[in-house]
Computed example of a mutant assay.
Amino acid sequence: MKKLWATTGINIILAGFLVFLLFYYEGPGHAAKPGGETAGGETASAEKAEEIASTSCMSCHGENFKGGAGPALDKIGSKYAQNDIENIIKNGKGAMPGGVITPEEAKIVAEWLAQKK
């Protein structure tokens, strides 16, 4: 019985450590350079926008934003201006609910999507 408790405790500690690694550790390749650029040369806001969109938008707009339950976003910048995209994200449109992400995140994602033409 004591062995079962010890094994369970160790598993809980390992699971907690893995959760920490998944959500908080970004590794040496993500160290930010002065001026908002990452070691890879992309701007930090573009990486942030892509991360937000991947976790919040991809389930409806499809892998690589090529479309799914929602419309394709891979060339949305040629159809809508940044302000229009931000408004749609904040307030929703058609079947898309508003407020899926915070207003600050909406601004970052809208700027990123507006560049997709």
Rank of each mutant, 00 (worst) to 15 (best):
E63H: 05
E42P: 02
G9I: 06
G99P: 13
G94N: 09
I89Q: 05
F20R: 00
G40N: 14
E47G: 14
M96V: 09
F20V: 03
A32C: 04
Y24A: 12
K33C: 00
G92R: 13
L18E: 03
S45Q: 14
I10R: 07
A81Q: 15
L21H: 10
A95T: 12
F17E: 06
Y24I: 06
G67Q: 07
N64H: 07
Q82K: 15
E42D: 15
G27Q: 01
S59K: 12
A46I: 10
T55H: 13
H61M: 09
Y24D: 07
G77K: 13
A49S: 11
G36I: 04
A6S: 03
T8E: 12
G36F: 10
A95H: 09
G36K: 03
K3S: 10
E42F: 12
P71L: 15
S78V: 07
A15V: 07
I52A: 08
T102Y: 00
E86I: 01
K48H: 03
G68F: 09
K66P: 07
M1N: 13
E111R: 05
L4N: 06
A95I: 08
E50Y: 04
P71F: 11
A81I: 11
D74G: 03
P28K: 09
N83Y: 04
K3G: 01
P71D: 12
M96W: 08
S78A: 15
N87R: 08
I108M: 05
N87L: 09
G27C: 02
